[in-house]
Structure formats: C-alpha cells, structure tokens
Design a protein around this nucleic acid. Structure first.
Length: 271
DNA sequence: CCATATACCTGGCAGC
DNA sequence: TGCTGCCAGGTATATG
C-alpha cells in the first residue's frame, strides 16, 4: 500500500494526537516480518514523545527507546480513541491513554520493532543503508548525479533500491521517470547531468504533490484517521499498459525489471 | 562494493 | 459458481 507519500500522510494524520500519550499496553497478533525484540509488557508506562519518518519507516520516539513501524506492502495504521474488536489482520494495537494505534496488515510484510536507541543495532540494521530524504531539503541534484554515475543497473532499479534516495516505490519510480522523459531501462551511469537534474526535480515534484494531495494514486489507501479517497492522483503511466499516453497518445508499455512491473511511454521516454 | 534473485504472506481478480 | 494461476504498494538477505 504505501510509498513515501502514504507513509508521510499517515504520520501527519496521527503524530500530534499521539504525542505525549502514555502506553498502557501493546497487543500483537500474528507474527510480522520480525519479532518485536522486547517483552511487550515492558513498554507499559512509556510515553510516546514524537513520530518521525525515515524513508518508509515510522519512528515512534519513546521516553525510553523507540518503536520502528513499517507498513510493508499492505499495511495501514489507524489511531482512534477506541478500536472495534481486532480482526484477523489486525496485528498490533498500541493502547495508550490518548487512543489505540492499530496496524492492519493482511500480508504481514510490515514490522514493529523496538530498539533502545536509534543508533542501536536493531535500528541501524534497518536504517543505516537508507539514502537521502527526497523532501527534506538535503536532496541535491549534484550529489544525486554523482551517485547515479557509479551505478550500472537500470535507473528504475537504482531508484527502487533506495540507497541513493529513499521513498521512491514502484509506482512513483515509473511516474518520475516518465515526468523526466527517461527510459526506465537506461543504465543509471549513462544519465547526463541535465537529465539527472530533471529526474531529481521529477522525484521531488511527484512525491511532494502526492503528500499534498493526501495519499496518491493508491486504490485503497487510508490514513490513520480512516480518511480515504477524496484525492486520486491520476497516474501518467503506472498501471496503464496499452492505454494512450496522456501526452502523445502512444500506447503505454509494460515491462518487468527485477521482478517488478515497470510502465513507460516509448515515445516520451526514448532513452 | 555492486547487481540480481529469493523469500516472506494473503487477497483479489481474470480466465476457464 | 468454483477453481487455478497470477499479480500486488517493500526490503532484508543470500548468492554470484
């Protein structure tokens, strides 16, 4: 479900409401991607100080340690004063005196991991290799181009890897490359500085717009207030195989790269 | 260091 | 209607 914009929109929808809350208990359902890493009862009485985001991870800063949350492919969070009885896919309830933060995740690729500190091994394993934040102001075109020059893999896969810039998932990778007029199969190292600049701008633009619109493109995205679907950013190429390009009318093409589908316009993205 | 394949798990949908 | 096969927003980990 979530790429960076959806994770950020989720964060914004509950961060202020949960800040300062006291944890009463943590209930876990079926196993997620990794074990929590601590006895759930030991979190009782901790306070949630803030909710930050790093890439697609949400970091719940506690007055002692932190919780790292990931939504995987199908996860969503809901924060409400109370929750209905947990369903089969509700795998975490963080019960606080301000409300219950519930993780709903049918595929269970998501995660809830406790770490004693952000620089502790449990957190570093997940965060250390992450690239720069695209919306934080630290994402610079020159450094982006320099990083791309060192990579021989197709640009689409380099973007997805997330070790140069975080947050660009399968949908926005195709969308940003379309916006920049770059063929997804082009080796990253072959991208000139001017074209890297265009791609840099396209990534910022597509992600920022999606955050602004409260989610994006995603069919079933719901933020932590349970709000959904008042937006619906139109995808230019993602999921539009065979349909006419909105710019030139050429049929959008679908290919597979690294076991993931990629969409592009063969005319607007010549190389 | 880099590139690629694999694994994890469930639900929805197209096609028969 | 019911079954089968395929596809899906992510990413750590193993392998070459």
């Amino acid at each position: 479900m979530p790429e960076l914009p959806e994770v950020e929109v989720t964060r914004l929808s509950f961060a202020e409401r949960i800040a300062g809350a006291r944890i009463e208990r943590l209930r876990l359902g079926k196993p997620l991607r990794w074990p929590l890493g601590v006895e759930p009862d030991s979190l009782r009485g901790r306070r949630v100080l803030a909710v930050r985001r790093r890439g697609k991870y949400l970091l719940l800063d506690l007055d002692q340690g932190l919780l790292l949350l990931h939504l995987g492919m199908s996860g969503s969070l809901n924060f409400a004063p109370r929750q209905p009885e947990a369903g089969v896919h509700d795998h975490m309830d963080l019960v606080t005196d301000r409300g219950v933060l519930r993780l709903h995740d049918p595929r269970r690729f998501g995660a809830v991991v406790w770490a004693p500190a952000e620089d502790a091994p449990q957190a570093r394993k997940l965060l250390d290799h992450l690239g720069v934040e695209p919306l934080g102001g630290a994402f610079e075109a020159a450094a982006f181009h320099a990083a791309l020059r060192r990579r021989q893999a197709p640009i689409k896969q380099v973007l997805l890897a997330g070790d140069i810039v975080v947050g660009v998932g399968n949908i926005y990778a195709s969308e940003a490359l379309f916006m920049a007029g770059i063929r997804p199969t082009l080796r990253a190292s072959q991208i000139s500085r001017p074209r890297a600049d265009r791609l840099h701008a396209a990534i910022v633009e597509v992600l920022a717009r999606a955050v602004r619109q409260g989610g994006s493109t995603l069919r079933d995205f719901v933020n932590a207030e349970g709000k959904t679907g008042y937006f619906q950013l139109e995808a230019a190429v993602y999921g539009r195989a065979g349909q006419p390009c909105r710019v030139c009318g050429t049929a959008i093409r679908a290919i597979v790269q690294g076991q993931r589908s990629t969409f592009y316009c063969p005319t607007c993205q010549k190389h």
